[in-house]
């Protein structure tokens, strides 16, 4: 399995295999039947003139897959949903990225897309919070907002005519992320939801599930919609003095490791599952650094198999 080169002992290997097999049997039969690889013919009924979507082409009148993935059918549209691939942006997605370059009036961000994303200075809220034209002075002070290698949270604004991707950060909730960890997971593990920002009050931690598979786990910051410039300055100097408490730092590491384990096992990352895994590690007294060890992987896989079995059982019970 991917990313998982663990020194498993005999019992652990057997247990992991059993858990994974259990997951395979629990998955709906339709899911594995709809799986296709490159150059597989997708069976369609040609009479109801279908629309070919992403990952398909036409070869001698047949619909043929060009990707490995799962066939999805929505009314007349037939497309292939990829599993392991780079991020495919949609307008309005919340993403986390890393600044790699500062160009005139814009920042370039690495977001796991086929190109670098562009964040224009004009689509940013200025730190003074006043709406006005961006001047040359603003342009010179761009490094005071984001520098190279900063981690930034933003929203997908749209595509330009040449195919490049533009971002925006027009709210206080977007912007630079500090005091935390950035994880990268395959984008197919993050589902688009209503809520991508999560404040976990019990841990005093912010968790951002970026649609591009970049996940931020960091100390909670209080979002202040109305901040004046002076206040900001005061906050800065105060910030230098107050460190993140040890307790919070431990929580950040624990949650981050939980997400790492889940992504290595290939489970969809939801906020509930991450919290559950972190709680499970706490209740079974697993140390933070032991969470990435073999035993906890096997445990997590087993718990997940049981959870899905329960879910399926409840569904069936409800149907009856």
């Amino acid at each position: 399995m991917r990313d998982l080169h663990l020194p498993l002992n005999q019992t652990q290997r057997v247990r992991l295999e059993a858990a994974l097999h259990e997951l395979q049997t629990l998955a709906p039969a339709a899911a594995s039947a709809a799986a296709v690889t490159v150059a597989d013919t997708i069976p369609v009924n040609h009479e109801d003139n279908i629309l070919k979507g992403h990952g398909t082409t036409d070869q001698d009148g047949e619909v043929v897959a060009t990707l490995c993935g799962v066939v999805e059918r929505v009314n007349k549209l037939v497309y292939v949903r990829t599993l392991r691939a780079r991020y495919k942006p949609e307008v309005g997605d919340i993403i986390v990225g890393r600044v790699i370059e500062i160009a005139p009036k814009r920042w370039r961000l690495e977001i796991n897309f086929s190109q670098d994303a562009v964040l224009m200075l004009s689509s940013m809220n200025l730190p003074d919070g006043i709406q006005r034209r961006r001047t040359a002075v603003d342009e010179l002070n761009m490094r005071s907002i984001f520098e190279e290698n900063d981690v930034v949270c933003a929203e997908v604004r749209g595509f330009q005519h040449d195919g490049s991707l533009h971002l925006q950060a027009r709210s206080q909730k977007y912007g630079k992320l500090k005091r935390g960890q950035l994880l990268t997971v395959p984008p197919y593990l993050v589902k688009r939801r209503k809520q991508h920002f999560h404040h976990l009050e019990q841990y005093d931690v912010d968790l951002i599930l970026g649609c591009n598979g970049f996940i931020w786990v960091g100390e909670h910051v209080v979002v202040n919609e109305i901040t004046t410039f002076n206040e900001d300055q005061e906050k800065l100097s105060a910030e230098v003095e107050t460190f993140t408490p040890m307790e919070t730092r431990k929580h950040i590491c624990r949650l981050a490791n939980a997400a790492r384990v889940l992504s290595a096992l290939g489970f969809t990352l939801t906020i509930e599952l991450i919290i559950q895994t972190a709680e499970a590690s706490l209740s079974s007294n697993v140390k933070i650094n032991d969470m990435l060890g073999a035993e906890f992987y096997v445990q997590t896989a087993e718990t997940e198999a049981k959870r899905r079995a329960d879910l399926l059982g409840r569904k069936k019970g409800g149907a009856r």
């Binding site: 998955a27 594995s32 799986a35 296709v36 690889t37 799962v70 599993l83 593990l189 489970f267 969809t268």
Partner: peptide, 13 residues
């Protein structure tokens, strides 16, 4: 490839 795709899809849930 098919085996790999099926496995990924099943684990994703």
């Amino acid at each position: 490839l098919l085996e790999n795709t099926k496995q990924l899809e099943c684990q994703r849930g």
